[in-house]
Each structure stands twice: as structure tokens, then as C-alpha cells.
Nucleic acid binder design. Structure first.
Lengths: 338, 338
DNA sequence: TTGAAAGCGCTAACAA
DNA sequence: TTGTTAGCGCTTTCAA
């Protein structure tokens, strides 16, 4: 058989109607499970559908109903990080679960270039989705304002600065960072540094703010290094730099678990013991936290809840209900690294 | 302002036409960038579009053109693993790059339940996409046969047993596993075991086959443990089990880098030195490989190429061109763990 | 309970 | 170069 698949004309509702000896209207009613269809008619239509192999054309249906029953999830993540950040998977799955239950299809659109950015905006504008969840937007992200301009119901996960005034769901990164830093202080650490990351995202920026707050007058800017991404590599390099700057450092707040894992490797390579010589804490409570030795003390953030709540925010807007900003709780998980 | 966003009727091509004092046909020509439009007309239309805020309705367009210019990427991955497997991100990005250049929108659909499976099948059937790439299908995956039945141009990444006869792109897992096992043998290891994973996927199954082939008569089934997923946890437990069964084990092939990283932790906790006491190799050359100490010897598989090639296979079918099965090359990356 | 007919917004063939 | 017109396949009145 040649590779060219002859997509012979698909059966339409008209084919079903004539095969069943009924009108288009009746077929439509059966397909949509409406009342006021006689049992005979229903059977005849179902039989005809099977016989001609009919499947409804979504474009035609969307055109007349003016809805698509699909929601976009827009992922705007730097190349290297996509999917190395375990939160994204959880957010995706959380959103999918809620939408699936409401009988909406989640379609994930990834933005990896300016060209993508424009195409995705067109996709939203074209009416192919009824709403959008935006994850990992950066400060002044163009797609964010495009979404607002398009006027499609939308919600952010997180709340980057410079972002339009749309509903969002987030955690209180400032408070959480403050809390875990305080516990680091509480264990008697004297020289506490931070490996900050992703300062152009609300999460990165706010974690740094919480850290500084907690330290108050004891905050020392020279004990803070900054990297663009939440990665293992950032932790590795960041810790090495911190050790160069201050060999007596005895406490470190890493902006994420992946960063903490990298930092821990650097610490061990320098011959220091965790937590005896240096205490270290992370953020996320991702699978990283259980992989390090010793296991990581960290902040547990409910990534799947972020996703499901964002999805609910979008559904609420579609239904004309209020969609208030949501701030979810975090908890400190104390293990052995500090 | 109330949260209910009044989505006042969107401007249609008719609104533009009357605003510009021209016909629908001319407007359509301008919008689609066709020739045979006078400069005056073009300017008038563009001006009118801006004035009334027109955006083309995709459903209407798809209905008449009978195409969507979108390609689905179907991800069917167990909950925990989604996005912990760095390959998926690379595959996604690779496919996106190719499709973006061809002006197709990649829409990722995730399957996390039977309900999802049905809804995704409906989505494909409805004509909302012109083709599909299927990643991480398992043996006899229902979505795989659904795709075949639907008759939409499609390609697999990987080639699970029991999968319909559709084009696919894969690496030769058997040969690659054989090659790296041979190098393990070549370094003088005498008691070589394997931590196998995902035996219901072609990758997992074939890596095991390659391992057994390479060992030939020296293959010892008691030195093989098997886990369902390619995870760090599988490596940790698997290695502990292997050490219980055979404390003198001196070589291990882990089915993926994540598994190898877990195994290495177990080895270190048991007081053994890598590579002096035990040599260990992985598979993927993912970011895991650079994170372990010592760094991992592994098989480099071109994950982004898998994605881009699969996308090309789908585009070829859409264009009526041949879409032959593709087997991509892998290379052994020799570092310090064996 | 069913049928007939209008029309969703757009493209494309044909005529002018 | 432009306008007119006939649908794409479906839902949804309105009548019967």
C-alpha cells in the first residue's frame, strides 16, 4: 500500500440522515443526547452512524455553538528547564484532572521562540480554546498581555511582576522563604547565604525577599549569589562561589530543591559535612529532596493544587462566576540537611 | 467591574467588508495574503480590520479548508514519571521546532486516565488536528490503535510491541545496550547485573535483550532485577536487591541514567567505590549523567532528533510523501563510572 | 416527536 | 482586480 493515505470523504450528518431515513435535525438530537427522540428513531440513527462510520466534525460544531470545550495551558519555559522542573508536570496533571472531569480538553502549547509566541496568540484568538492557563510567565511576558487583550478567560499560575491584572493562583513565596530561613537561623547558623535563581519570576524574586526579611539586620548581600535558572548546575556553581567568598559559611538557602542538590554536591566535594558543617534548605519538596544525602529540608508547595486551582479559576470565568485570586498554603518539611 | 467578561460579539469578515466598503471576498484575499488585490483595497481592508478589531474565526476557516494546521503530540506517561524523564521535554521541543517552522501549531494532549484516552480520541477524530505524534506508548496501548483507526497521519516515537503498523522513529536499543554492555565486559568486570525497567515499553525490553545478547553464555538471570519505571527509586532499590543477591557484583547496567543515579547512591551507601569496586553504566545521556559523582558512562540518545523526525514523518504523510521508518544512531559516552 | 430551513464565519470558484 | 455566490457540517429555531 502506498504511504499516501486516501482520506476518503468523511461521512457527514447528511449521510447518516439519509441512511437512517430521517432528517438532519433528528440525527443531531440523537448525537447530542437530547430528549424528544423516539426510541425507534434513536436506534435507527445509531445503527446508521455505525454503518456509515460517522464522526462529528468539531470545526462545524464549534462554529455554530461558538465554543470549543478546550482550554489551553501555555508553557513558557526556557529550553533547558522545561521538564527538569518537576513542578510543571504536577501543575499540568492537576489542571488536566479538573478539566477532564468538567469534560474539557486540555491542550498544552509551548512557547520556545518569538514565532511560537505569535502563533500561540493566533491560536487563542482564533477561538480554538475557551480559556487559558498560563504557567511560568516571566516578567512582562508578551504572551501574558496578549492573553489579556484577546479577552479569553484566563488565569496565571504565579504572579510575575508586570503581568496584566488577571486572576491567579500562587503560594506566598515571601512568607514561605521567611519561614524556612528562620528555621535555619533557629538551628544556630551564623553565616547564612542564599543561592537565588529566576529573579525575573515572582517565585525567585519573592523567595529572595523572604530570605532578606528573615535575616533583617544580619542580612549580608555578599552572601547572595544569583543565577537565571532553577537548576542543579546553578547550585553547583553558586555554592562554589559562596565558598570562595566566605569559607566559614554555615547555612544556605537554595532557591529550589534542584539548586540545593547542586549545592550539596559542591559542599561535599569541598570536604564539608551536611548538616554538621553547613546546613542547607531548599524549596519545592520535589523528588530531588528525597534524592540527596542527607535528605533535604525544604518547603512543600502544592504544585498539583496550583494547576487544578488555576483550571477552576478559568472554568469559573467561563461560567460567569467570580474567580478570586487564590493563595495556597505551604509547609516546611524538616528533614536532615539542616 | 463584575468578573463576567462580556465577550461582545466578535467582528466578522462581514463587518470588515462593510467598514472598508468592499466585499467579503476581497477581505478574505487580504487576510490570506493573496495576489490580485490592489494596494488601495489592501490598505482599506487593513485599516478596517484594525478599526473593528477583527480576528479570523478558526473554526469557520477549518470547516471550509478541511484542515487545522495543528498537530497533536500525545503523551501517555505514568503519573509520577511525566517530566521526570528528561527525554520527553527534548522530544517535545524537537517536534515543536520542526512544526513551528512549517507553520503548524503543536498541541500536546496528555493521557492520564481512561476518560482522557476517550476524550483525546474524540479530539483527533473531530478533525481538530491534521496529524499526531505519539510518544511513550505502552504495549497494546489503546490510544495507539485508536489513532490508526481514525486514519489521521501519525508517527510513533519508539515502537512498542503490539502497536499498529504506523511509521515510527526510534533508536536501536538492542544494539546500543549490547555496545555499552560489551564495554563493561571489556573493562574486566566478571559479575555483571542489570537493573531493567519499563519492560512493557520497547525501550525497556530491547535494552534488556541487548544486555543478554552481549553477555551470551555468561548471562545470569539471577543478576537481573526488574522495575516498572525508569526512576531514581528503582535504581536505589534495585541495587540494594542486587547487592543482597550477590555481594561480589562488580558491574551494573542500569536501564536509564535516573536508574543509574539511584543505583550509585545505593552503592555508595553500601560502602562500595565506583568505579573501583563496581562499574556502572546508564542510558540516555540526560542531565542525570553529569550529576552523579563520578559522572556516568552512558548511551547518548538524540531525544530532540526523535521529536523532530517524528514531526517530519507526520508532515510527510500530510503532503503525500513517503514516510519511512527511521532508526537513529546512538553513541556510547565514556566517562568515569565504569 | 420530527422536518425544514436559516445561518454560524469563512473560502473559493466563477463572473464581471 | 473585485463582487457574487455556493457551500463546508453542524445546531437550533419554528412549524407541523
Amino acid at each position: 500500500m502506498p504511504p499516501t493515505r486516501t482520506r476518503n470523504r468523511r461521512a457527514t450528518i447528511n449521510d447518516v440522515a439519509s441512511a437512517a431515513g430521517l432528517s438532519r435535525g433528528t440525527v443531531s438530537r440523537v448525537v447530542n443526547g437530547e430528549r424528544y427522540v423516539s426510541d425507534e428513531a434513536r436506534v435507527a440513527v445509531e445503527e446508521a452512524i455505525a454503518r456509515v462510520g460517522y464522526v462529528r466534525n468539531s470545526a462545524a460544531r464549534n462554529l455554530v455553538t461558538q465554543e470549543s470545550r478546550a482550554i489551553a495551558l501555555i508553557i513558557h519555559e526556557p529550553h533547558s528547564l522545561l521538564f527538569e522542573d518537576p513542578n510543571i508536570g504536577s501543575i499540568l496533571l492537576g489542571a488536566n484532572a479538573v478539566l477532564s472531569k468538567a469534560d474539557y480538553q486540555l491542550v498544552s502549547l509551548i512557547i520556545d521562540s518569538d514565532r511560537d509566541s505569535r502563533r500561540v496568540a493566533d491560536y487563542l484568538r482564533g477561538g480554538l480554546v475557551d480559556g487559558a492557563v498560563i504557567v511560568s510567565a516571566r516578567a512582562s511576558d508578551p504572551i501574558a498581555s496578549a492573553v489579556r487583550d484577546i479577552g479569553v478567560p484566563a488565569a496565571f499560575v504565579g504572579h510575575p511582576p508586570g503581568t496584566p491584572d488577571l486572576p491567579y493562583v500562587a503560594i506566598d513565596n515571601v512568607a514561605a522563604a521567611r519561614a524556612i530561613t528562620q528555621r535555619l537561623i533557629g538551628t544556630g547558623r551564623r553565616r547564612i547565604g542564599m543561592i537565588a535563581s529566576a529573579m525575573d519570576r515572582d517565585s525567585g524574586h519573592d523567595r529572595f525577599t523572604g530570605f532578606r526579611d528573615a535575616l533583617g539586620g544580619r542580612f549580608d548581600a555578599s552572601l547572595v549569589v544569583e543565577y537565571p535558572l532553577y537548576t542543579y548546575a546553578a547550585g553547583l556553581e553558586g555554592m562554589q562561589e559562596l565558598l570562595r567568598r566566605c569559607p566559614e559559611i554555615d547555612g544556605v538557602f537554595a532557591a529550589s530543591d534542584a539548586v540545593a542538590a547542586g549545592a550539596m554536591t559542591a559542599l561535599q566535594e569541598s570536604g564539608r559535612k551536611v548538616p554538621d558543617d553547613v546546613g542547607i534548605v531548599g524549596f519545592d519538596d520535589s523528588s530531588w529532596a528525597l534524592r540527596t544525602r542527607p535528605q533535604l529540608s525544604t518547603v512543600k508547595q502544592p504544585a498539583d493544587l496550583l494547576g487544578s486551582t488555576a483550571a477552576e479559576l478559568v472554568l469559573a470565568q467561563i461560567r460567569g462566576l467570580p474567580s478570586p485570586v487564590q493563595v495556597l498554603d505551604t509547609t516546611v518539611v524538616w528533614r536532615d540537611s539542616a
